[in-house]
Design a protein around this nucleic acid. Structure first.
Length: 655
DNA sequence: CTTGTGAGGTATCCTCGCAC
DNA sequence: GTGCGAGGATACCTCACAAG
C-alpha cells in the first residue's frame, strides 16, 4: 500500500488545535528501541508523521537502529523516539508531541558527520529548524515522514521512463511533485524538439527520482553517463538561443555508476556485455587508450580492408578487469576496485528466546510452542493452506472451526519442517505437508532438503560447525537440526563441494592461460605463483602439556600471482589422523597406513613422515599444475621454504 | 598433580516415513 | 519390500579450564 504523505510544511500556529484522525488514546510502547530509557512508557497515535499505528512507525524507525547502535550521539535515540513514538499526554490527547529543536540539534551534531562518512545525509524530514526551540504542547508540525513511494503525476514523466513510482523530497529539496513539475515543465520545449533522446529520461530521474524501498533515505540520481548524453545533444541548441546548461545539472556532479546496486550485480551485467559486439578500431570516439575492449593497449587503427562484418566480442566486465588490472603493473589499481559500500549489521532484537530441538517423544510441555520460529518455503506453505482449506470445506461444509498447525504431530527435517493441520471444532486432520524444497536425487527414498544443503555450503566457508549453527538458530528461537543429522548431511555435501572445487581450480587454470594470451604474453603457460602451507599446530597451554607438539594436518596452496584475485590453482592436503584409530593405537615405526584400515583411513601420510616437508608438498602441487601445461616463471615463498628448490628441480628436469 | 566438567566433535546403532 | 535420508540415543575422544 502506498501513501502520499503530501507536503511537509512547518506550521507554527500558537495554540491551534488541529484534529488529526480519530481521538488519540494512550497505549503502551511496544517498539523495542523505545521501550526503555526514554523517560516515558506510553505513546499516542497517529503521530506527526501521519503514522496510524506503532507498527508503521516501527518499520521506519528500524532503519535508524544501526546509527543508534554506534552511539554517534547519546541524544539520537531519544530524538527518534520522541519523533516517531511521541509521548502520550492524556491532557492534550489531540496533539502529537514533538522533540525540541535543541534535542534535534544535539542528535544531528553527533550523527551527521558519521552519516556523511558513509555517503548518507541527515534526512530532510529531520531538519532541526522545523522543530520548536521550546517544546510546546500546542505546536503542530506536520513534517515529512520517511520517504514513501508515490505514483508519478508529472505529465512528462508519467510514461516511457521505465518506472512508475517516485519518492520525495528529491535531491533539490522539493517536497512534493508539484514543485518539481513546475521546474521540469520549463524543459518541455527541449524535450519536444528531441535535441537528445536521453533528455526526458535524465530530467525525470533527476526531478522525480525512482522510488527504492530498499534505500528509502537516499534520493536516486541519474548517472553521469545519462547526463552527458542529454547534455551533448541539447547544450548546443540551448546555446544557440542564448541559454546555458544549468549549473545544477552539471554532469560532473553525478556518479559514473547509475546506482549503487550496479556494484553488486556485476555478474548480471556481464551476461549483457557478453552479447554485445563491437566494430574493430576506435569508431566510438573514445579517448585514445580507452576503447573498452583494448583499454591500456595500443588502439587498433581501422584498416580499409576491415569490413563491417568483422566483429569482436566484448569481454565480461570481470574478465576485462582481470586482464587490465595487473597487480604488479599498478599497485594502486587494487584500491580503486573496492566499490562495496560499508554496511552496518541489521538490527537485532534484545530479546533472545531459546527453544530446545524438537524430540519425537518429547512431552507436551517440552515441545516448542507457537512462539518459536520455523524456516518455511513460502510457496509450499501456500499450497498447504489452500489445499487444506478446500479439503476441510468439502468434508465439513457446515464447520465453523479454524485450522491450526498440529505441533504435536510436527516433524522436523533438518532446518525445515513438515506440518499437519487440524480443525479446532471438527475432527478434520490434513495430511502432513513438506514445507521445504526437496533436492531431486533420482534415487528412491526420502529426498534431501535444498535448504539444508545450501546451509551446509555456507558452513563450509565459515569456521562455524554443528554446535555453532545450532546456537545461532536456537538463539533466534528457530528449530535447529540435531547434531547427528547435521553431521550426516555435511558429510554428503562436503564430498560434492570437494568435486566442485576441483573442477573450479581446473577452470581457473585455463582462465589464467586465456588472460595471458589476451595480454599478449609470449608464453601464456608460464605463470607467477605464490606458495605456502598452513599447519594445525596445537597451542602450548601450560605446565603438564607437551610443548612444541608437531602438527598432524597441513594444507599447502599454490595461488596465481597473475591477476588481482590471486586464485588458488592447486591444493595439497596432508593428514596424519585416522578416523578409525586413536593416535595412541598407531605404531610409529610401521607408519600410519596400517592394514586394518587402508581403505577407510582418513590419514594420507604416515605418522613418521615430517609434516613440514614443504619440498614434497610443493613438488606435488607443481606436478599437478604441470598436468594442465602450466609452468612456473616466478615463485614467491617464505624465505625458509624449500618450495623454490622443488620448482628448480622440476625446471632442471625439463631442460 | 589429579580429577571433574563442559564444549566440541565422531562413529555407530536403531527407528521411522516416503518413493519406487 | 527395499533403499534412502532423516531423527534420536549412546559411547567415546580431545581439549581447556578450574578446583581440590
Amino acid at each position: 500500500m502506498l501513501f502520499n504523505r503530501g507536503t511537509y510544511l512547518v506550521v507554527f500556529i500558537a495554540c491551534l488545535i488541529v484534529k488529526i484522525g480519530a481521538a488519540r488514546n494512550c497505549e503502551r510502547i511496544n517498539i523495542p528501541m523505545c521501550r526503555e530509557g526514554i523517560g516515558y512508557n506510553f505513546t499516542q497515535f497517529p503521530n506527526s508523521l501521519g503514522h496510524q499505528k506503532q507498527e508503521e512507525s516501527g518499520l521506519e524507525i528500524k532503519n535508524f537502529f544501526p546509527i543508534v547502535k554506534v552511539k554517534c550521539s547519546p541524544h539520537f535515540k531519544q530524538f527518534l523516539c520522541e519523533l516517531y513514538i511521541p509521548r502520550c499526554n492524556p491532557a492534550d490527547s489531540l496533539l502529537p508531541h514533538l522533540p525540541s529543536r535543541n534535542l534535534c540539534e544535539k542528535a544531528r551534531n553527533g550523527c551527521k558527520p558519521l552519516l556523511n562518512k558513509f555517503g548518507l545525509y541527515w534526512p530532510n524530514n529531520m531538519n532541526c529548524e522545523k522543530f520548536s526551540i521550546v517544546l510546546m504542547a500546542c505546536l503542530i508540525i506536520k513534517i515529512g515522514a520517511a520517504r514513501n513511494c508515490e505514483r508519478i503525476n508529472i505529465p512528462m514523466c508519467r510514461h516511457g521512463i521505465g518506472y512508475n513510482f517516485t519518492q520525495f523530497p528529491n535531491s533539490f529539496g522539493h517536497q512534493k511533485q508539484d514543485d518539481s513539475g513546475l521546474q521540469v515543465h520549463q524543459f518541455s520545449p527541449l524535450v519536444k524538439v528531441k535535441c537528445s533522446p536521453y533528455l526526458k529520461q535524465f530530467l525525470c530521474e533527476l526531478f522525480a527520482p525512482r522510488c527504492d524501498r530498499a534505500d528509502p533515505l537516499l534520493p536516486h540520481l541519474p548517472s553521469r553517463n545519462l547526463c552527458e548524453k542529454a547534455r551533448n545533444g541539447c547544450k548546443p541548441l540551448m546555446n544557440t538561443y542564448g541559454f546555458n546548461w544549468p549549473d545544477y545539472m552539471r554532469c560532473e556532479k553525478f556518479s559514473t555508476y547509475k546506482k549503487k546496486r550496479q556494484c553488486r550485480n556485476i555478474s548480471e551485467n556481464s551476461v549483457v556485455l557478453l552479447n554485445m559486439v563491437f566494430q574493430k578500431g576506435n569508431t566510438h570516439k573514445f579517448k585514445g587508450g580507452n576503447v573498452p575492449y583494448n583499454k591500456k593497449r595500443k588502439t587498433v587503427k581501422q584498416n580499409k580492408s576491415d569490413s563491417y562484418t568483422s566483429k569482436y566480442i566484448r569481454l565480461t566486465k570481470e574478465k576485462h578487469n582481470l586482464v587490465v588490472n595487473d597487480p604488479y603493473a599498478n599497485p594502486q589499481e587494487k584500491s580503486k576496485r573496492v566499490c562495496r559500500a560499508a554496511r552496518l549489521l541489521r538490527p537485532m532484537s534484545d530479546e533472545v528466546l531459546l527453544t530446545k530441538p524438537i524430540r519425537k517423544n518429547a512431552k507436551k510441555d517440552k515441545r516448542p510452542d507457537y512462539n518459536s520460529n520455523r524456516a518455511i518455503c513460502i510457496y509450499k506453505m501456500e499450497e498447504m493452506w489452500n489445499a487444506a482449506f478446500k479439503e476441510h470445506q468439502l468434508r465439513n461444509p457446515q464447520c465453523e472451526g479454524i485450522l491450526l498447525c498440529d505441533l504435536e504431530n510436527e516433524e522436523k527435517r533438518g532446518f525445515g519442517t513438515r506440518q499437519q493441520l487440524i480443525c479446532t471444532k471438527c475432527d478434520y486432520k490434513s495430511k502432513r505437508y513438506t514445507l521445504y524444497e526437496e533436492l531431486e536425487s533420482g534415487k528412491p527414498g526420502r529426498k534431501a532438503s535444498k535448504l539444508d544443503t545450501a546451509i551446509h555450503v555456507g558452513l563450509s566457508q565459515s569456521p562455524i560447525a554443528y554446535s555453532g549453527i545450532q546456537k545461532i538458530f536456537l538463539s533466534g528461537n528457530i528449530l535447529a537440526p540435531t547434531t547427528s543429522s547435521l553431521q550426516r548431511r555435511a558429510n554428503t555435501v562436503m564430498k560434492q563441494i570437494e568435486q566442485i572445487n576441483k573442477q573450479d581450480m581446473k577452470r581457473r587454470r585455463n582462465d589464467i592461460v586465456e588472460i595471458n594470451k589476451l595480454r599478449g604474453k609470449e608464453n601464456p603457460h608460464a605463470i607467477s605463483v605464490q606458495m605456502d602451507g598452513m599447519y594445525n599446530n596445537p597451542l602450548y597451554s601450560g605446565v603438564g602439556r607437551t610443548p612444541f607438539q608437531p602438527a598432524t594436518q597441513t594444507i599447502y596452496t599454490a595461488a596465481e600471482n597473475e591477476t588481482s584475485k590471486h586464485n588458488i590453482l592447486a591444493l595439497n592436503i596432508k593428514n596424519k589422523l585416522c578416523s578409525k584409530h586413536s593416535s595412541l593405537d598407531v605404531d610409529n615405526d610401521s607408519g600410519r597406513l596400517h592394514e586394518d584400515c587402508t581403505d577407510d583411513c582418513s590419514a594420507n601420510i604416515p605418522m613418521v613422515k615430517s609434516i613440514g616437508d614443504e619440498y614434497t608438498w610443493a613438488r606435488e602441487c607443481l606436478l599437478d599444475l604441470k598436468e594442465d601445461q602450466l609452468e612456473i616463471e616466478h615463485l614467491v615463498t617464505d624465505a625458509d621454504s624449500s618450495a623454490y628448490k622443488a620448482a628448480m628441480d622440476l625446471h632442471t628436469m625439463r631442460e
